[in-house]
Structures are given as structure tokens and as C-alpha cells.
């Protein structure tokens, strides 16, 4: 499968991806000052974060470093990681 051309992700898109991952797309509990609150504390489990990383690679062509996903990851830190993310390679089977 060929790589998708890299596209940047803004804060709103990332928020939407996160909410979709946990099935709360109609709610919006990531607002305002939540940039620096660990996502785990906001109710995003580690599997949701894994899912988001997978989608970002597949749909936005960005390779998210493993270190971006950890217990203290926040919306802000994830956005920063994406700024410096490399182009994802084509899928390896």
C-alpha cells in the first residue's frame, strides 16, 4: 500500500480524532485549557491514543514517534510531536 502524502494536523482535527477514538464525537470535553492536562486524566485510555496514532499514520501520512504516546501525553505535547513528525512510509505487510 503506498504512503499517503503527509498533511498537517491542527488542534481541532486532533481533538476530533481523539473524541472519535473513544466514541464521544458528539461531546466536546477537550476545550480551552486542557492542552496541558494528561490525556489519560481526561478519560482517554491508552488504546484510544494508539488508535489515533494509527489513523494519523494511515490518513495523514505522518509517522508519530513511539515516544509521543506515554502516560503524560497531553493534547499540546501530541500536537508538538506532530509538527516534527516524519512522512510515514508505505505500509509494510
Amino acid at each position: 500500500m503506498p504512503a499517503v502524502p503527509a498533511r498537517s494536523i491542527d488542534r481541532g482535527t486532533l481533538t476530533t480524532l481523539l473524541l472519535e477514538a473513544i466514541g464521544l464525537e458528539e461531546d466536546a470535553d477537550l476545550e480551552g485549557d486542557d492542552s496541558d492536562t494528561p490525556l489519560l486524566e481526561l478519560g482517554y485510555d491508552s488504546l484510544a491514543l494508539l488508535q489515533v496514532v494509527g489513523r494519523i499514520e494511515a490518513e495523514y501520512g505522518l509517522l508519530v514517534p513511539d515516544t509521543a504516546i506515554n502516560d503524560s501525553a497531553t493534547l499540546g505535547s501530541l500536537l508538538a510531536s506532530l509538527q516534527s513528525a516524519r512522512q510515514a512510509e508505505g505500509m509494510v505487510w
Binding site: M1, A21, L47, A48, L50, Q51, G54, R55, E57, A58, M91
Partner: peptide
């Protein structure tokens, strides 16, 4: 049909 990144982590 789409690839492993599209499989739900759950």
C-alpha cells in the same frame, strides 16, 4: 480491506 492501522485498538 484497508490495512492494519484501520483496525480498532479495542
Amino acid at each position: 480491506s484497508k490495512g492494519k492501522q484501520f483496525v480498532s485498538a479495542y
